[in-house]
Design a protein around this nucleic acid. Sequence first.
RNA 1: GCCGGCGUAGCUCAGUUGGCAGAGCAGCCGCCUUGUAAGCGGCAGGUCGGCGGUUCGAGCCCGCCCGCCGGCUCCA
Length: 677
Amino acid sequence: MTLHVTLPDGSLLELDDDATVRDAAAAIGQRLAKAAIGARVTSRDDPDVTLLVDSSAPLHDGDRLEVVTLKGDDPGAVDMLRHSAAHVMAQAVLRRFPGTSFAIGPTIENGFYYDFAFPEPITDADLDAIEKEMASIVGENLPVERAELSVDEALAVFGAGEPGASESGLPLGLDQPFKVELIEDLVAAAEAEGSEVPVISVYRQGDFVDLCRGPHLPSTGRLGKGTFKLTSLAGAYWRGSEKNAMLTRIYGTAFATRDELKAHLEALELARQRDHRRIGRDLDLFSFHEEGPGFPFFHPRGMRLWNAIVDFWREEHVRAGYEEISTPVILRRELWERSGHWDNYKDNMYFTEIDEQPYAVKPMNCPGGLLVYKNRRRSYRDLPLRMAELGRVHRHEMSGVLHGLFRVRYFTQDDAHIYCTPEQLEGEVRGVVRFMHHIYASFGFSDVRIELSTRPEKSIGSDEMWATAEGVLTRVLDAELTPDGAPLPYQLNPGDGAFYGPKIDFHIRDVMGRTWQCGTIQVDFAMPERLDITYTGADNEEHRPVMIHRALLGSIERFMGILLEHYGGNLPTWLAPVQAVVIPIADRHAEYGREVLAELRAADLRAELDDRSESMGKRIRDGQLQKVPYLLVVGDREQEAREVAVRERGEQKGAAPLAAVVAGIAGEVRERALPSQ
RNA sequence: GCCGGCGUAGCUCAGUUGGCAGAGCAGCCGCCUUGUAAGCGGCAGGUCGGCGGUUCGAGCCCGCCCGCCGGCUCCA
């Protein structure tokens, strides 16, 4: 038996019945490299359906074939493949667990999921069985067929009616309540819009039918063996609302080729090794204890990193014209009622009682800061007044959301409040935007995404105030340039602002491509009003200042976690908890070792001496595992010449004079040099 | 808070049908005195997360609680 495929130039290629993409490529003289090569195949039935397939994928008579290099740059095709994988998974689940209802199963970054209501809970162990069933569905190579139904027909398929089969062979009476709800919603939405009652498209493969917009692979066999994997089991609310039933979500990942799947799984493993919780334990930086879930304990080395961040932060704030204040952690409840936090935030606050008076632990720093502002009369000559505070706030986060340093119940905001006149607002906002970029770049984050959020439906303040504030933020962002001189890109989020004012949020992208919201600039006309703060103008009248809330790093704790994962623990020297370890080879070098240590410490470096009675290899290894940037080995030769043998980040650099090495490291720290990436 | 999973030494993990709690690493002591990622020997280390139950007997079975992990919702 033979099959024919059409090549891009229109010619026909004759191949054996069981030919694969690789065979076809060979036949036309194209060699397939092991990785990153596959083919674009257009279905014989539907010229709109094109997909990228693994080189081992079987070919079908009538396929249109184009052999291409896969660079993961064909998201449409990969997305389609993942969506088909989700259908195959749902089919496998229904086969293995009859009586299961299935809800929604979209594609996500790197994969897909599907939500189910199982008659009995399933466990991780069941994932293997489902994966096996998926493999057999792939092996059956069921054709995937699209059908377009009227609402009534669709309800007959997914409703609880009499089981059977329609004239076109679709099963009836599947009794899938989630699907029925979705169909009813489509109808309701169409009616609300006054548009036509929609045609409902469904996709069918064998005994499985799903409500779906498509597109899909032409048959289940197009999913390459070993190109998908079920990764985890989780709970998720039906339609994302915690008021609804909790469904069981199965996550999977799928790629066009096996190599890509393998690479993805390896990347996941690498990410696990970069987990800041692991690094925090291995480098003895911080810990968590049952006695205080969500409350981090910082160890001596963790505080070294903390202080390196904070020292830099303080230095920069002095330069940028900020004053630093500190306000109490516990304040009378009455203040929180006045500030509005009681109404908006009390579920997340901690309370206590002192001398029979109700108190609250601060979840934010602004009310305390405002009391400092109010402590005396302020003049227009005092403005702009920039008051920064490393404020430790406590928030009673739900237990299920705690996650290392990323989500904790106390954290230290690098907060600041800027009080200024309306005329000064634009200049102040511009200053903060530039400050923000400077600070991120200093830590090695140059990829920053900016979002501008404007007036929400529920808001306070006059139209004029909002127009002014939004105008200021927009003008500032529109005028800013990137370092390359291009206009600064930003995303507009209409209606996403705080209830008291519009805001600019800053998201930094780490080395793994994840983004983290850190900085925020919020313009606030409301709080000055609520707490009645004023300044005396040149006209001797009382005026209301504008208040800017801003944070750069967001939370020192979380930022520390981001740094640790971004650098995989290999922090720039200026941040490293231990910057250098001196390793004397034998006992007779210990004295010179102590001298080297003294020199390093005299240069304000965080240095240690490892004179344990362990082999040198062992001590080198420990230093590497502790991610110490400089290991300085001293033996007979070095002692003789007053040198040190330098090992910098795992690389031997040879010996150099002690004074020069110390000066070099100290210089790197002083400049806060970043590792070249 | 909700869904699912998991709690054995500081860490990583063994522990059979319920029948005397183990290993490696880390720690401590000693030996070795070392030339760039684990030298050798010894010692010590545990209310098996907690409480209750079933049983002659529970690390193992059951219930409740606590904590952690992966998600959902929420969020710096």
